[in-house]
Every structure is written in C-alpha cells, then in structure tokens.
Amino acid sequence: MGAEQPPDAVLSVEGLTKSFGDRRAVDGVSFEIAPGETFGLLGPNGAGKTTTISMICGLVPPDAGRITLCGHADGPATPQARSRLGYVPQDLAIYPDLTARENLQLFGRLQGIPRRALTSRVDEVLEMVGLADRARDLTKEYSGGMKRRLNIGVGLLHQPDLLILDEPTVGVDPQSRNAILEAVDALAAEGLALLYTTHYMEEAERLCDRIGIVDQGRMVAVGTVDELLRITGEADAVALSGSGAVGAAAAALGELDGVSAASVDGTSITLTVVDAPAHLATMLAVAAESGMSVTDVDVSRPDLEDVFLHLTGRALRD
C-alpha cells in the first residue's frame, strides 16, 4: 500500500499524521498520485479526508510524515510548490459581492498569472465552466450549481499539475452534480492529475483510477476498483439466459477455473465466479461450444460499500 513511489509522482504522501488534542484525525496515511491519474479518497464524514487535504495544501502543518508535491520535497511549504496545485474546497470559496470575472481575476493574480495572459485565461475558464454569458453578474445572484462550477473554475485557472477537489458535489442538486462529474471526467481525460475526496462510492467508482479508502484517520486500503473488490473475496454472480443445450452448458461452465457453482433455472444458468469480467469471454465461448445460444448476460458485482463493510465492519455512510 503506497510502498512503491513512482519517480515522477505528482504527489507523494508518506506516513502523514495529525492530531487535534487527544483526537488523532489522520494516522499514518500514505499514497501517491501519478501524472494524469485520478485518485479518490473515499470515506465517511469525519474519516480524515479534509484534514489530509488541508495538510497537502499547506493549511495545516502535519505532526509527522512527508509530502512531496511536484518534486518539491518540502511539500506545500514553499509558494513554488503551492503554485503547482489547484484547490477546490468543500465550501464555496468565491466572493459573493464580486462577479465571476472579478473572482477569477483576483485568484489569477494571486496565482501569479500576468495581467495580459490573465484576461484570455479568464475567458477560457468562463467558457469551460459555462458561465461566459453570466460573467458580469455578481456571484451572489448565481444558483448553487453555478457557484459550484465557478468554484471549480477558480481551481483550474492557473492550469495546475494537480487539482484537489474536496467533496465538490456535497449539497448539490442532481443536475448540477452530473454537470460537475462530467467536468471532472473531462479534466481527467485531458490528463490532469486529480485528487478527489468523496463519501459517495458511485462517484469514486465512476471517476477514479485508484481509490484510497479512509476510515478513522487511517488508510485501510488502496487500489483500483477491481483490486479493492477482490479484497472482499466475494465472487460475482453471473446469469446467462438463452436457449439450446442449457443443461450441458451449465455442466461445462461449472468445470471452469474461477467458477465455484453453477445452477440451472429453466433457460437460465446462474454461476458464482471470482472476477467475472476476466472470465466472461471464456464462459460465453464454452456455452456456445456446449450448444447454448446466449441471449442475455447479467453480472452482479460486490461494490465499494461491501468493501468498506468488509474492511471496517461498518457501512460507508454510518
């Protein structure tokens, strides 16, 4: 878990620890993010995600541990290092008595973007977040979704190497939430490295290349979604429906590696398979060879909720 650090990692966190009084908010958290990678921190409220991000952004000094940010061994301690990251806080971090353009211009200047370049970059970002036609309106007149989009736009303004998004969809209506997720998808597709915290497992599954599961300040697991799902040891349920030699197909499929059980129910076969996606093509070929014409396939997989439950003994939203 985080033992091997890519030499070109955008962010590397090792043994990060932080206590507030007697409460240990973050306890030895380690992970790294490669360029272009979307890394998710998944955990319930109070798990230590925001404190971890606060340390990465230089808002809170860690008690122990090391942060290497874009090659800067001092982490966020220097302005040079901080200029490489974009931060989208959980709370809206924009000024209500300024227009969208004025907000972007202010934060752009604080990021060191020269005036001339800033004007065109602000226009680009306004287009990107879909606020070009409302750029001159005070943001206090915006809807919640528009404010969220601007909030993300400010974080992107200076084209950081790493964008940190701290629960950007909390308290957002479904339509805006979808727009935000699409925007994050687009950023990931452009190759921007992202650190995304959430307590919504479906967001983590959809967006993240790798996920770190955090609970009570500790990183309990890190990996791709498939890797994490394997931790549970629970197999997928595969249902094949069709016609022809269903019984023969079931018998042949039951002999395959990774298939632990096969049962027939009329024209359907239900299989218990470890890592079903890896075996799906073989299963379909065997069914066809056995004389079964498969018309429908359904794979039910354990999800991250199950993984969290397996690792912590508690539900993700407890």
């Binding site: 808002l59 901080r82 200029s83 806080p89 971090a93």
Partner: peptide, 12 residues
C-alpha cells in the same frame, strides 16, 4: 465564506 483556505493555499 470559505475563501481563507483557498487564499492560504495560493502561492502567497
């Protein structure tokens, strides 16, 4: 307002 963390994470 929540802007202080953003200001403090800026390179200033």
């Amino acid at each position: 307002l929540g802007t202080l963390p953003r200001l403090r994470s800026s390179p200033i």
